[in-house]
């Protein structure tokens, strides 16, 4: 089965009919890679449909339940973009079959000019880079005003400038900026390491009752990001913002043993009653014997410096670790 039958015809389509022999009952992952549009029917049922006759290089995947035995299939392939060759690959993968390509090599030959990855290294000084971040790798939870801070020691984090929050941290290499810088790009980067995400929304909130939540959405009239200054001695950023009249400066740095990321938050100005920091959020929060807290099924731990006492509260079906604050500096560690 191959799109080579279409040669380089611009506006064209082909219909492929055949039998698919499924070895066992089970779930199969179907992948259709194509230029142009493609529709897959098995047993006369439409199972996949990518209605884009103009698409560049699309890839669609679907998990399908199939019974053992022979199944008639039909694939419609159609394309109207003259600047691309006809290309179609059908790849199937399941418990009983290894990943195998059902189309001929020439139907979807390897890209002769694949993109080179663009990794962002960290030199002898911290490397700062702004980009979009997909929280928990979820495109629907894209953070738009984030900055990655790569530390020469190898402990990196991403700060959400519109929430005054550390969105995630990891160890290893810094970020892969290919999604942002290759071709048109989509404006985002990806941490290069096992990434510990925290929570979305503000760290700072004014909580006067159990029903008051920490702001999840940016409100221009309340929250004003002021950017950051570069600390001369360390090359690290000092983040600045104000929230409802509270002036905030925050420094983040790895602990000396590189075990944790320390957040040092300085509050100035008039601090309204009920001002709190949210230190963690998760399905559960468990106090540990050493005074720290295990967050969200022990994915990470929060340890407060000094005598400050954080408490656990229920909010919107989740647990939150909160700390009442007044003017001054609060320091705590994210350990993972």
């Amino acid at each position: 089965m191959t799109t080579e039958v279409l040669e380089l015809e611009d506006v064209s389509g082909a219909r492929f009919d055949g039998m698919l022999n499924v070895p066992d009952d089970g779930e199969y992952l179907m992948t259709l890679n194509s230029t142009g549009g493609v529709k897959l029917l098995i047993d006369n049922q439409e199972l996949m449909n990518n209605e884009r006759p103009d698409s560049w290089w699309d890839s669609k995947q679907s998990n399908l339940q199939l019974k053992a035995g022979a199944h008639p299939f039909t694939i419609y392939y159609y394309k109207d973009a003259g600047y691309m060759p006809p290309r179609l690959a059908w790849i199937i993968e399941g418990s009983a079959i290894q990943r195998s390509t059902l189309t001929a090599f020439g139907s979807y030959p390897p890209n002769p000019n694949p993109s080179s990855s663009i990794y962002v290294p960290v030199g002898s000084k911290p490397r700062l880079l702004r980009a979009f971040l997909d929280f928990n790798r979820d495109r629907s939870r894209r953070l738009t005003h984030t900055i990655g801070v790569g530390d020469p020691g190898g402990l990196h984090y991403i700060y959400d400038l519109k929430a005054g929050n550390v969105a995630c941290a990891w160890r290893g290499d810094f970020v892969d900026a290919t999604p942002m810088w290759d071709d048109r790009g989509d404006g985002s980067f990806r941490p290069m390491g096992v990434t510990q995400f925290t929570y979305m929304g503000q760290t700072l909130g004014i909580i006067n009752s159990a029903s008051d939540g920490f702001p999840a959405d940016y409100k221009e009239e309340d929250f004003k990001t002021k950017g950051y200054a570069i600390e001369e001695a360390t090359g690290r950023p000092i983040f600045r913002y104000s929230y409802k009249g509270i002036e905030v400066e925050e420094r983040c740095y790895p602990s000396l043993d590189q075990n944790s990321l320390v957040r040092e938050i300085a509050l100035n100005g008039t601090i309204p009653a009920g001002t709190h920091l949210k230190l963690g959020e998760g399905k559960d929060i468990i106090p540990m014997p050493d005074g720290s807290f295990a967050i969200d099924e022990r994915k990470y731990y929060i340890a407060l410096a000094g005598d400050a006492k954080a408490s656990i509260r229920d909010f919107n079906g989740k647990k939150e670790l909160v700390l009442p604050v007044s003017a001054g500096i609060v320091k705590y560690s994210i350990i993972w």
């Binding site: 979009f132 894209r142 953070l143 738009t144 005003h145 400038l161 519109k162 404006g187 985002s188 940016y218 004003k224 990001t225 002021k226 950017g227 950051y228 200054a229 570069i230 001369e232 950023p237």
Partner: peptide
């Protein structure tokens, strides 16, 4: 993409040390 930024060199070494957000606007991503 999401803000207007003022870049200042406060110590005269031709390297910006303040990245000040003049105004941040929303963006969907």
């Amino acid at each position: 993409r999401g803000e207007l930024t003022k870049l200042k060199d406060t110590n005269g070494d031709d390297v910006a040390d303040v990245y000040e957000t003049v105004y941040a606007w929303p963006i969907s991503g």
